[in-house]
Design a protein around this nucleic acid. Sequence first.
RNA 1: GCGGGCGUGGCGAAACUGGCAGACGCACCAGACUUAGGAUCUGGAGCCGCAAGGCGUGUAGGUUCGAGUCCUAUCGCCCGCACCA
Length: 972
Amino acid sequence: MEYNFGDIEKKWQQRWTAAGTYKVSNDPSRPKYYVLDMFPYPSGAGLHVGHPLGYIASDIFARFKRLKGFNVLHPMGYDAFGLPAEQYAIDHGIHPAVSTDANIANFRRQLDNIGFCFDWDRSFRTSDPDYYKWTQWIFLQLFDSWYDKKKDKAVPITELVGHFGKEGNQGHPCPGDAGLRFTAGEWAGYDRRRKEEILMEYRLAYCGYGEVNWCEALGTVLANDEVVNGVSERGGYPVVKKKLRQWYLRITDYAERLLEGLAKVDYSDAMKEMQTNWIGKSFGAEVDFAIAGQPDGAPALRVYTTRPDTIFGVDFMVIAPEHPLLPALLSAERRPEVEAYLAYVGSRSERERMAEKKITGCFTGGYAVHPFTGLHIPIWTSEYVLAGYGTGAIMAVPCGDERDFKFARHFELPITNIIGDAFNGEEANPTKEAVLQNSDFLDGLVMKDAILIAIHHLEEKGIGARKVNYRMRDAAFSRQRYWGEPFPIVWRHGIAEPLAPADLPLELPHIEKYGPGPEGEGPLANIPAWTSRHLETNTMPGYAGSSWYFLRYMDPHNDKEFCSRAASDYWGQVDLYIGGTEHAVGHLLYSRMWNKFLFDRGWIGHDEPYKRLVNQGMIQGSSRFVYRLESKAKSAEMGTGRELGSDIPIFVSAGIAALQGTPEFHQLIGLGLQNLLGSASPALDAVVLSPLHVDVNIVDGVELDMEAFRQWRAEYANAQFILEDGKYLCGTEVEKMSKRLYNTVNPNDLVQKYGADTFRMYEMFLGPVEQSKPWDTKGIEGVHRFLRKLWRLFFDETKGAVWTNEEPGAAEWKCIYRTIRKVEEATERFSFNTGVSALMIGVNELTELKCHKRAILEKLVVILAPYAPHVSEELFHQLKGSTELLTREGSPGSVLDAPYPVVEEKYLLESAKTYPIAINGKTRTELNIALDATQQQVEEIVLADDIVKKWLDGNHPKKVIYVKNKMINVVV
RNA sequence: GCGGGCGUGGCGAAACUGGCAGACGCACCAGACUUAGGAUCUGGAGCCGCAAGGCGUGUAGGUUCGAGUCCUAUCGCCCGCACCA
């Protein structure tokens, strides 16, 4: 009987589905384990071998945990709302719902091929009204909440209204407008509209005017993490800053907890670092500088600095071009120049600013008064100071800050040295270790010690205070787009009114046109039925639905709640979350915030959503190149050159191509052309090679299948080749895997040829899951051979089943237990490549022992199950004498319900062994010692030996080291 | 510039807490069965050397009886952030 993977895999996939093998129930009597993959955005591109990597890893782990007796939740769904589907709709006139359906169907078909153990009954897509009903509901709760700094958690907005009625906003400074102060009496006097405006400044989901990232090409606002290097992450279009009315999530209120929470979770250092940087916490002080010539009580210029110790080194001030105080500073004669500068700044895109990094700026004509020296300090404006960070104004200390120094140099401003020899006049020195000079009461102090003293003086004078700053901004939460969750908000007389929960879901209406509304709003503004109800016309961003989906899987069919507390208390945190690093500062931060919010309000019982996060590496493409021979003249005039004196395309093997420019090259080419074209070889110095990507699927390793190549493209039908050793070898390069580069490999093709089990094991065998590595199809044969070798332990081609009921011998027990030990440990620590290797070694050894004993094979099949689920299920049932998969109550059920084999230690012990005894690493003698001897016993035996005694010469050894069953070392 | 990670055969990689470096697999070589082999099976192999032997984990030091593993310096590669005051 042959290993017929095609039949086996099809059979078991059908039976698993029919029997509901992977259905999971919320059963509090059993220990739980939650394994989650970052759910995919169903794009139309189809899978390549890189996509399933994380799913295979999580599948192995989920199966392993189930074998270990856990009730394992392992769901899958779709992140179906978002920009690309809508762009596709605009370009092709296909409704996003339709293309999304098709993409999901295709995606599912590809996944099913590989044999995953997802519980599809719990699946959903974020664009289902049954799902986004709850996304809208959570939004309403965010809208209905504010962050109480005193309680350090989110609470209902009604509590805030209560405070206002009793004590105004005393003790609850407004996060949206730090200067806002009012008493209980004033509050009572405000009209409804004013009250709502104020409350809006406190809400966790709020609507306000703000500087946003506007992408003209996409016609929408983008969040900071969706903008990369000044262009949109999606599509690479230019992004400009624009003031717009937008919805935001007040994620900055959670900055500190998002930071602290990292200590409680198991993420990689790199991931924690990325999130920490994004949050960007810094310690410093805010300092008020009075403005010269202004009356008392006029607003001061407030700056933020992390280095208040350098306050005596301030030579000038710089404010952002957008700074609100700027107009008040302008002197009449400076006004034209400053306005010209502001116009210049306005004309520059974000991208230009980043690319050029030019030093620009303009003196405003105003002066600030130094709080300690009373000196007048010129106030400049420059685009290097960002309006959005700190106070939008800085005190410039050129001797200590690189940018300030360059600015001073460029505009020939004087530089005060407060650090003596530590400043060389050529570049700024940002040290904190230097001793301060020229600094009045700070003279003689080391800078880092002076920081707190300086703050103390500022506080005493009432012109400064310690201040913690975060770089993270509130998250823009609305999009002028169609394909997203509608906001459950009605606008009445400028007041945002939430819909009642009973009115949810607010369904997305069907539309035919995706153009923007009359005033640049989203497409919903074009629908009379929508606007007549005064519904918000923006929709939510792609990350809304993905910010809480891990909770919905716990209770996916609940139509009363987003997830019952009983369900979320049972499943708790995601024990293992697998996905790419690209979500480090987007999805992962947003979902952590939503989870914390739901926790604060008591709807769930855990603060952090993911206990452990593993980032799978990217599988890169290994591209192949052919080198086309062209004449120089042609290639110059046509961009890519064409024929070389005839219309036969000629390709040069990589080894020869590499010699380009050498005499051998000319010789070999000349020879090659002679063979191909007869005597008509052109002038060789007019020859040039252009490398072209060739489809990796018609290359075996690096050797080109020339026949397939001729059929690949009509233009290559009569291609000729200049070979080396009778072969055409291709050049290689590791690049991103992409259809455009012809280096994609389709998992379906490999599953077809080798089976899903081989494919899965090979993906794991490639290397650590976390590591990025280029794909190489060649090696898959080795894994396939392993599975066939395994099969032969059970079946013979002619004789059929070959297992026996004989009792295994010690060697066989030892072999299987050693294998179990290694596979179990490797799987547990997520090292699936070594797990596969351990299985291979085990099968090699059992083959060598000619072991066909049922007792051994039964255990082997179980430890194989996470890695090669189909073949292990088949062999498990063959051994049990059943070819039907019964329900879990019946016997034998699935191999996953078998107990994971327990290692019997006694078989791993050897009797006595002869050890080399070394003195200080040099072998002197050998002794026979029982393997289970204790350290104490070993020492006694070794020290009693005559040769050892002689060498020790009466000295007592420092220690006797018993090295891992290998040698014994006496250190003197 | 700042931060994180990584350097081991021709290649992908093992070596978990310092203890026989290179397991396992690919590619390669030899043999067997074959009309045939780009099928299958068996065996070989880090490098230099006929051999005995020597050299080997980017490079240079250090700690240790013992270092791929720990420490210091240095070179190289990858990733993230980047006018954040």
